[in-house]
Design a protein around this nucleic acid. Sequence first.
DNA 1: GCTGTAATTATACACTTGCATAATTACTCG
DNA 2: CGAGTAATTATGCAAGTGTATAATTACAGC
Lengths: 228, 228
Amino acid sequence: MSEPRPKFRREPATQRKEALIQAALGLIAEQGIGGATVRAIAQRADVTQGLIRHYFSSKEDLIAAAYEYHMDRMTELTAAPVADPEVTARQRLGTFVAAGLTSPVMDTRSVTLWASFISSLRYDNNMRAMHQRTYYNFRNRLEVLIADALAEAGRPASEGELRRMAIAGNAVIDGLWMEGGALPDAFETGELARIGLQSVGAITGLELDRTAVEQTDRNLPTKEEGEP
Amino acid sequence: MSEPRPKFRREPATQRKEALIQAALGLIAEQGIGGATVRAIAQRADVTQGLIRHYFSSKEDLIAAAYEYHMDRMTELTAAPVADPEVTARQRLGTFVAAGLTSPVMDTRSVTLWASFISSLRYDNNMRAMHQRTYYNFRNRLEVLIADALAEAGRPASEGELRRMAIAGNAVIDGLWMEGGALPDAFETGELARIGLQSVGAITGLELDRTAVEQTDRNLPTKEEGEP
DNA sequence: GCTGTAATTATACACTTGCATAATTACTCG
DNA sequence: CGAGTAATTATGCAAGTGTATAATTACAGC
């Protein structure tokens, strides 16, 4: 009668793993960590639940992999626009700051995801180790950019000063990123990126305002709203 | 024979509610949102699970109440040391910043709790409304302090500038607070408070360094560790 | 084409979840 | 002291949880 259509397809391991990770991330973002049940993840990845255990030793394992995936992708997205070596060190720093405070890095989904993972730091050593890694990865990149920009301006900074500036700059970016993701309607388009540039500028003593906003200011939803 | 010892005690409603909230907060902090089951909460509050439904219309309701409780208590703890009107506006600002970056406001438990709640912003309107309220509550307090300090220094700022400074200052505090709570061993005692003062100082153009650290520098665990 | 093997599905299980409902019990007020 | 009432406990339930195990089935290599 009808040709015997295969009931399922065998996919390469990396592809299946990624599909499962994406499904988990989507569910966590939309419904919180509690929404990411094995059955829901499997359904969203178009697969039966048994397969999860075939690729990950446990559900916890899958969640950890998803966290790593998400965080690495975010630092990568922030750092990518900085690749161009033709450009001033000051401009590279500005681009980095602005990229971290603009879509797609700064959005509700990313912030929600990140918060879900942070909340497990207290009781999950694996997650804590991963957080530490991704945190230093981001901060060290920022520190290098600051060091270069300061050297370029003829005012090289000491190790301690660099550390302090990197910690503070990272905090501003993180804080603004969170606020923008948590309350997307509370700020005008590009406002947080501008504030980020001014603030990191003030902290480092560099003029960053007019370096990079224009390049990354597009593709944010156009919303403005006064606060109560 | 033995005197008939009562099998339970009737407690005032507010007390029982608070006990349940505390139990929920403890569980969320220690085991994440998933650890806060009705049974676990009840057990921790020395009560049977039915009582939860007697005081809260649902578990979700209790969790929301716990969030409100926690956030209000944290802003209160940050704002309390500022009450003294004898003191310079600049000093009050410094005290505020330092208090938010010192124990007990800045600690792993608080950060973990906060993250658990933030992660539900995407799908829970109630939580989102509450987050908005607590966010503006904190930021507006900061804005007033900045405005006063600037006026005192003879450099009053425009509405727009104040808004920007408050957003940025709030971001620094939040960002440092988070980092300190997430990786408590990565910073020296008082380091983050110092960085916070310098940063908010740089953002507002005020000298805050030597204003308030000494007063709030105590009671942090003494740990230092270099980063990888 | 056949076959071995690993990917995938199917099924089952023991346990936990939030909530509803009924049965107790402590305390208040007369 | 005796009853009424609301706080509290006790019990039950249907649905959902993660995981283990067995049964299928697609596909690569001969």
